[in-house]
Simulated scan of single mutants.
Amino acid sequence: MSLIELGRYDRNLANIIVGRLAAEGIEAIAFDGGASIADGSYLLIPVRVMVDEGDLPAARAIVDAA
């Protein structure tokens, strides 16, 4: 499995996208979601949504259609 970045989103949207992709059978992972929670800036740091390189076209189509 080779991960590739689908995009960078705010924390809440990233988790929604991961769930939507999972519902379509595409495994996705949100990276950096816990960054800088201690200092209160966690909403300012974009979360990377990562998918398998082979799933990228389908994942992009799902996100673009939403």
Score class of each variant (00 low, 15 high):
D32K: 13
M50W: 04
Y9A: 04
V63I: 09
S36C: 14
E24W: 04
P46Y: 01
I26C: 06
R8Y: 09
G40E: 04
L44H: 07
L6I: 03
V49E: 00
L6H: 00
A65E: 05
R20E: 11
G19L: 08
L6A: 01
R60T: 02
N15V: 08
E24C: 12
G54E: 12
D64Y: 10
A23V: 15
A61P: 05
D39T: 07
G34F: 15
L13T: 08
P57L: 07
I26N: 04
D64C: 08
R11W: 11
D32A: 15
A23G: 14
S41Y: 09
F31Q: 09
L56M: 08
D10A: 07
G33D: 13
Y9I: 02
L13C: 07
N15G: 13
S41G: 06
D52A: 11
V49W: 02
M50P: 01
Y9T: 05
V47T: 02
D32G: 10
D39H: 04
I37D: 10
G25E: 05
D52P: 01
S41A: 10
A61G: 02
A35S: 06
L6R: 01
A35P: 09
D39G: 07
A61Q: 10
D55S: 14
L21V: 02
R20V: 13
N15Q: 13
D55Q: 06
V63N: 03
G40V: 02
L56R: 03
Y42T: 07
S2C: 14
L43W: 12
E24I: 05
L43H: 15
R48I: 02
L44P: 03
E27D: 15
I29C: 10
N12A: 14
A59M: 04
P57A: 09
L6F: 01
V63L: 04
A38P: 04
F31N: 10
R60V: 01
D39R: 01
S41V: 08
R60A: 06
V63M: 03
A65I: 11
V51H: 00
P46L: 05
V49Q: 01
I26P: 01
I62F: 03
L3V: 10
R20N: 13
I37L: 11
D10K: 10
G40L: 07
E53D: 12
V47E: 03
G54V: 11
A58C: 13
I4V: 15
L44G: 13
G54L: 10
V49Y: 00
L43T: 15
D64M: 12
E27T: 12
V51K: 00
G19V: 12
R48C: 02
S41F: 12
G33F: 01
G40C: 06
L3Y: 12
D52Q: 06
L6W: 00
I16Q: 07
R8W: 09
L56F: 05
V18C: 09
A66K: 14
S41P: 02
M1C: 11
A66T: 15
A65S: 13
N15L: 10
A58W: 00
A38D: 08
E53M: 14
G25V: 03
